[in-house]
Write a protein that binds this DNA or RNA. Structure first.
Lengths: 199, 199
DNA sequence: TTGATTTGTTCTCCAGTTGTTCTCTATTCT
DNA sequence: AGAATAGAGAACAACTGGAGAACAAATCAA
C-alpha cells in the first residue's frame, strides 16, 4: 500500500517521536504535535496507516497509537555451533543467521556448523571451516554426514552403510576408519556446502 | 520503448535527485527543478516514462512522481566467472548474484570466481570451488591473491613480494613456484572466502 | 455504582493542490 | 512541407488534507 505525502510524514514523525512519549500517543496528543486541530482529520490518516500495516489496529480500545513491530526479514540459515569428532555438537547460545549461496541449499531444512579438528583434511575441510548441513536421518553411501554415535558423540565423516555394519571414514591419512553396528549410528544430516573465511 | 532526449534527461534528473526529496516530487516541484513553467508540458514526458515502465502509473492518485521500484532486492555479490592458472578470467555472460556470509565480506568491493584446476589443493581449494575475492591492487606477503601476469593470464596463488621480484607459490606439491619481475604482476584481488557445493 | 471525562469514530463541509486534457506556438530534423 | 519534439498556458475534475460537530464506548473519579 502506497502512502500519501502526509501519511508518510505522519508516520515518520510518529517513529521519530516514539522515544519522547512514555505512552503511545493519543489522537489529541498527536494532533497537538502535528499542529492539527481536528481529531477527525487525523483519524483518516491513522486509518490509512493501519490499512498499510504500519500501525496496530485499535480494536475498540483506547490505548493510543502504536507502531507495529517491524518484521525483520533476517536472511540466512542458523549457525548452530561446533562439531568435533568425539563430542556432541557444541551448541551456541544465540543462534546467529548466516547467509549462504542458494546453491548450497536443498529446499529442505539446513544449518551451519563449524568444524573442529582435522579429520576431514583430505577432503579439503579444515579446522575452523564452516559446513552447511541438510537435516536428514538417512544418507547415501559415500555422503559426508553428521553422525550421532551412541547417542552422545557427533562427528563429521564419510559414511558407508552395509546390512550388518556402518563404517565411518575420516578423510585423514593418519586416522583410521571406525566400524559400528547400525543401531549405534544415527544420521543427523548430510554435507551440502563448505564455507571458509580467510583472515 | 525508446526515450527521447528530453525524456531520458528528465528520468536521469529524477533518479539523481531522488535522495534530495524526502517525498516523491509533484509535477510542480519537478517543473521548478527542470525550469519548466507548464505542468502540461511535463505531463507528456511523464506519461512517456510511465509507458516505458520506468515510473509508476498515477492511477488517479496524487502521490507524486515515483520511480518503479526494482522489486528484486537481490542480495549477494557478483559471480564473475572462472579463474584458471594460465588464462585470463573467463567471464560469465550474465553476472549472477551469490549470497555469501557477511563474515566473508570486507566492506569493500567483493566478487566470486570459480576455481579451475588443482593448483591450490594443499590449501584445501579444489577444482570447482568458489572463491570470494576482495577487489584490491595490493596484497600482503602470504596472501592468496588473484594476480594478472603480463596483462594476460590470471591466476590464484599465494604471493610473496620482494624488492626485485615477485614469487607466486601454488599450493600443490607437484607444482613449482614462479618468479616474476614486479612489473609483470598486477594484483587484482585478495582471497577472503571459500565456498564449495557438494552434489 | 454512577456520573464525568477522555478517546476513538463517523459524518459533513470546504479549500487548495495535483494530475489531466486541451489548444497553440516554436524549433529541429527528414 | 510535414513530422516529431518541446514548451506555455488555461481550464477542469479529482484527490488530499483539514475543520468541526456529534456520538458511543472506554476509562477514570468519586
Amino acid at each position: 500500500m502506497k502512502l500519501t505525502r502526509r501519511q508518510q510524514e505522519i508516520y515518520d514523525i510518529l517513529r521519530d517521536n516514539l522515544d519522547h512519549f512514555d505512552q503511545p500517543p493519543t489522537y489529541d496528543e498527536l494532533c497537538r504535535l502535528l499542529g492539527l486541530s481536528s481529531r477527525g482529520s487525523l483519524h483518516k490518516h491513522i486509518q490509512a496507516l493501519i490499512q498499510a500495516g504500519l500501525l496496530e489496529p485499535m480494536e475498540g480500545l483506547q490505548r493510543g497509537i502504536r507502531l507495529v513491530e517491524s518484521v525483520e526479514v533476517e536472511e540466512g540459515i542458523p549457525f548452530l555451533g561446533r562439531i568435533a569428532a568425539g563430542r556432541p555438537i557444541e551448541a551456541i547460545s544465540q543462534a546467529a543467521l548466516m547467509k549462504v549461496p542458494d546453491e548450497m541449499l536443498t529446499g529442505k531444512s539446513c544449518y551451519v556448523l563449524q568444524v573442529t579438528g582435522d579429520s576431514m583434511i583430505d577432503e579439503g575441510i579444515f579446522d575452523g571451516d564452516y559446513v552447511v548441513i541438510e537435516q536428514r536421518d538417512s544418507a547415501d553411501n559415500g555422503d559426508i554426514v553428521v553422525a550421532l554415535v551412541n547417542n552422545e558423540e557427533a562427528t563429521l565423516k564419510k559414511i558407508k552403510q552395509q546390512s550388518d555394519r556402518v563404517i565411518l571414514y575420516p578423510a585423514n591419512a593418519s586416522m583410521a576408519a571406525m566400524v559400528y553396528k547400525p543401531e549405534e549410528i544415527q544420521v543427523q544430516g548430510v554435507l551440502t556446502g563448505l564455507l571458509r573465511c580467510y583472515r
